[in-house]
């Protein structure tokens, strides 16, 4: 039987709409988010576990949790 591989979920930020407030990095349990040059949030895909805390916290709701392409 073929084994189904589930892709890992990660946080994705809509860079253009991000206000760079930093609410997301405060709640990230893995310290996987940084505010890049005061412009937008950037997620370290290696560290992100796709828990969704940042997406829940984001006041602009510009973070989505999606399956990451391998």
């Amino acid at each position: 039987m073929e084994k189904k591989i589930r892709k890992k979920k990660k946080a994705f930020v809509s860079a253009d709409d991000c206000v760079a407030c930093g609410c997301c990095l405060k709640v990230c349990p893995r310290n996987a988010i940084e505010i890049w040059h005061g412009i937008m949030a950037r997620v370290d895909m290696e560290r992100c576990i796709g828990c969704g805390k940042c997406a829940k916290e984001c006041p602009a709701s510009v973070i989505v949790i999606q399956e990451a392409e391998a």
Partner: peptide, 25 residues
Amino acid sequence: LFKPRSWCVYCPMGTMTQLICKAKQ
């Protein structure tokens, strides 16, 4: 009405500092 820190989305200081950061970058 919305999320706790909704003010951050349209806070004039936040918008202004983001614009400064963009210009600097």
